[in-house]
Amino acid sequence: MPRRVPHDDRPAYTEFLPRWYRPRMSTYWWLKRRAYLTFILRELSSVFVAWFVVFLLMLVAAVSRGEESYRQFLSWSGSPVVVVLNLVSLFFVVFHAVTWFNLAPQAMPVRLRGKRIPGSWVTASNYAAWAVASALVAWLLLGG
């Protein structure tokens, strides 16, 4: 005769714990839907972020080694492979930025005097900050 298990929200451990049903998922599950593919592409943008850190540090190293090595770095960064890599990186980092800013109202609901500020305001202020930051970078690099 089976032992009665009380119906509680925290059921006691029994030795009849059923084996979980876990269907095997395909490794390529993210190709099945557009939304899944977008998710994986957004996650992959991080790889290009890491590449750009490497590229930036190579630029810093070249500049500190002197004028000649800076010139070599410039001609190396103009070679087709590096240009294509940076073009793909630009696509991915812009994709990251756009998805990040569009998600901002969900990630940080801002309240003012107890009322929630409309999400579009949060997004708009993020885009404004992006414009200011990009202008600052351009101003610093192009010589002020």
């Binding site: 972020v49 750009f52 590229f55 930036l56 630029l59 410039l74 001609s75 960064s77 103009g78 590096v82 240009v83 940076n86 073009l87 990186s89 630009l90 980092v93 812009v94 990251h96 930025a97 990040w100 800013f101 900050a129 992006w130 930051a133 990009s134 970078v137 351009a138 690099l141």
Partner: peptide, 17 residues
């Protein structure tokens, strides 16, 4: 990353080379 890297990639990675 979202605020600074797009401009840096565009300038250092494409526009200057």
């Amino acid at each position: 990353v979202a605020l600074l890297i797009p401009a840096l990639v565009f300038l250092c990675g494409l526009a200057f080379p």
